[in-house]
């Protein structure tokens, strides 16, 4: 086990960082969708004057 970790620590570290980035991206999208701060659109709904009509305000 220790040998495996020693030999593959680079891969494990990068995989963990990548997984964290993916989770962060998901959470960010979810949070943004609720707040309208910046949903999937490029126009940033939070900046849209009508955002309050589509998103719950924080």
């Amino acid at each position: 086990m220790l040998d495996f970790l020693t030999e593959n620590w680079g891969t494990i570290l990068v995989s963990a960082l990548l997984a964290a980035a993916v989770i962060a991206a998901f959470l960010s999208l979810r949070r943004a969708r609720k707040k309208g701060a910046a949903c999937a659109c490029g126009g940033s709904c939070g900046q849209c004057a009508c955002s309050g009509m589509c998103h719950k305000q924080p």
Partner: peptide, 20 residues
């Protein structure tokens, strides 16, 4: 910047996930 930044942010979320 507000408009441009939203694209950069988008690249870090939905585009990143799509790329993977």
């Amino acid at each position: 910047w507000e408009r441009g930044w939203s694209f950069i942010r988008k690249a870090g979320t939905i585009i990143l996930l799509s790329a993977i």
